[in-house]
Write a protein that binds this DNA or RNA. Structure first.
Lengths: 236, 236
DNA sequence: CGCCGGTTTGACATACTTCAAGAGAAGTGG
DNA sequence: CCACTTCTCTTGAAGTATGTCAAACCGGCG
């Protein structure tokens, strides 16, 4: 499964030191975390947790992207979360996990066994507070996505998706109104994220292209040509 | 707006004492909360917060039901949360609110001005911990609903809705497999909750009735005749 | 080169929406 | 208590966005 002989790294050099669960920790607290942490790496496509698994550990994403999803009996799949560096995987207080967590790209996690982490959590307000903030952010994102899933048209969904990506990833900007973006996923994964089929995703993306809102560098690299048009296309 | 001369009530007699934000508080902590709390009442249909409002206070629902929703420019509306007694309204650390909060039935809130509440929150682990639990529950519910919105058919949405209601409300049971349920909202509100139109809601409800899964006492009182059939109709 | 996963494109099917009308309930005022 | 209005809900007919099925294309990799 996971590649366990991953990079040892000091927390002080960690790329997510100031945005992850540990963001508010002082040096002492960090030292304690350092003692109970371990890294795990996953290849793109690997399962990190499957629905029903025991939540033996919780983790922060250090590098890469992962998805949170659920699949119905007949194969319909819905992504319910897109996890990027500094996002937290885990539900303190829950024994099991009710979704599938899958590495979308090659991913490195900073893991804590759940029990010791929970102990430290209740003893360390800085950790608890940061977890609360992260959870609240997730909740907000989930609710925004509910609006998208329930009420937006396919075209609006695509536009919102691209806009969301641009806000969550550092894009090598061209100019203010134009920028470049790398699609980190297949059309099918986008479809699962947006509650569409992959064919509809493809058609709508190309629709946006025909209308001069975006252009392709290659299939996975998109130039946003008119940010304003994109924003209006989102529907909100 | 709010009816401010609401019932004074001791926390010890409060119906949500053991399930709300204060659930883990001891007598001392409760006494402090008691000092900064106040009650507000809203009539069915009244706005509690509008999108963009300053979050001057946070609150627990004591009696009644409220909804969290967002409306797009052109009037499309999506409910993103259904708030029932003991649910918490408020986002510590946020200055403004990004959704509309509306009383669905006559509702009484237990309110705390945000600033003093936040101070107490950071000084009282019992409060912070409980808030984290409540937030996590909300997040889970939101994610379940994302699956519904993105992937379920109209019929499955209705079945899931009825099933969800039966789990969240105490229903006067008939027998194990049959029970009665009161719909707390109009077809239009259900539609906004499920990402459908009110006509589709009406049709699907009557479809379930024709198939003998449910029956009507009156338009708002439903008998679930076959819980098994209802569960399978939910799709998960 | 030839496979193979990912993507595009077309033709057709359908679930859901939209528009429209009417029937019940429920509230209001005389 | 009865007209009157106003919601709420139901039902029908027609339209449409999106899904389904199928074929072809494209780019990378063994």
């Amino acid at each position: 499964m996971a590649n366990l002989d991953a990079i040892p790294m000091r927390c002080s050099q960690c790329p997510i030191r100031h945005s992850a669960i540990c963001a508010l920790c002082d040096e002492d607290e960090l030292a304690k975390l350092e003692q109970i942490k371990s890294y795990r790496s996953f290849k793109a496509g690997q399962t990190i947790f499957a629905r029903g698994d025991d939540l033996t550990y919780v983790a922060s994403i250090v590098i890469g992207m992962a998805t949170l999803s659920r699949t119905l009996e007949d194969g319909r799949r819905q992504m319910v979360g897109l996890l990027m560096p500094s996002d937290f995987i885990g539900w303190p207080g829950r024994e099991q996990i009710d979704f599938d967590v899958t590495a979308m790209s090659d991913t490195t996690l900073c893991c804590f066994n759940r029990k010791p982490f929970e102990q430290m959590l209740s003893a360390t307000p800085h950790l608890a507070r940061r977890l609360a903030e992260l959870t609240l952010d997730e909740l907000d994102a989930a609710r925004d996505w509910m609006v998208l899933l329930g009420r937006k048209t396919a075209r609006e969904k695509i536009a919102t998706f691209i806009d969301m990506l641009s806000r969550r990833t550092k894009h090598p900007g061209l100019t203010a109104n134009r920028y470049q973006l790398t699609m980190p996923m297949t059309r099918e994964q986008m479809a699962d994220n947006l509650g569409l089929t992959l064919e509809t995703v493809s058609r709508q993306i190309n629709g946006l292209k025909k209308d001069g809102v975006i252009a392709f560098q290659d299939r996975r690299t998109v130039d946003v040509l008119d940010e304003g048009a994109l924003k209006t296309a989102t529907g909100d």
